[in-house]
């Protein structure tokens, strides 16, 4: 049993192989990376449109995690005894698509209304509701 920070070369190559093959762990790692990229966009960018686009990236990452788990559930249906768990995951991802469409419509309408009133899409200038 090795400690957490001791990285042997063969172990490292083994984990790297784990992440570079098509499997649940690599899909989840990819989803986490995409979610973090989107979260950085939301936190760091000042353009409201880019913030909305970054939210779409985050929703896509969550969808990827759902679909990866759905696939794992289908692969393991004979173990878990839940043959339709995979379909549930995909339906959840489908509803995320619908939610993203609704969110984009409302968010962009707010952006248009704000730009019409204030002439800016900079988040630093959107402070009229600050207490």
């Amino acid at each position: 049993m090795h400690g957490w920070l001791l990285l042997g070369a063969d172990e490292l190559s083994h984990w790297l192989g784990n992440l570079l093959t098509f499997r649940l762990a690599s899909c989840l790692a990819l989803a986490g990376a995409l979610f973090a990229i989107g979260a950085w966009g939301v936190l760091a960018r000042r353009n409201v449109l880019l913030v909305l686009i970054s939210v779409e990236l985050m929703l896509n990452a969550v969808m990827l995690a759902f679909v990866a788990f759905a696939r794992a559930h289908v692969n393991l249906a004979h173990v878990t005894g839940r043959p339709y768990a995979g379909e549930s995951g995909q339906i959840f991802a489908l509803s995320i698509i619908a939610l993203a469409a609704a969110e984009a419509a409302v968010g962009l309408a707010i952006v248009i209304a704000y730009f019409r009133n204030k002439g800016s899409v900079d988040t630093r200038e959107i402070s009229s509701m600050r207490g």
Binding site: C27, A93, I97, L108
Partner: peptide, 23 residues
């Protein structure tokens, strides 16, 4: 790849076709 072909089609249609154009 994750065997979600319908979701892949929806991704292209809704995201690539609708949301992207609205943005």
């Amino acid at each position: 790849l994750l065997q979600a072909s319908f979701l892949a089609a929806m991704e292209i249609m809704v995201y690539g076709g609708a949301i992207l154009v609205v943005f």
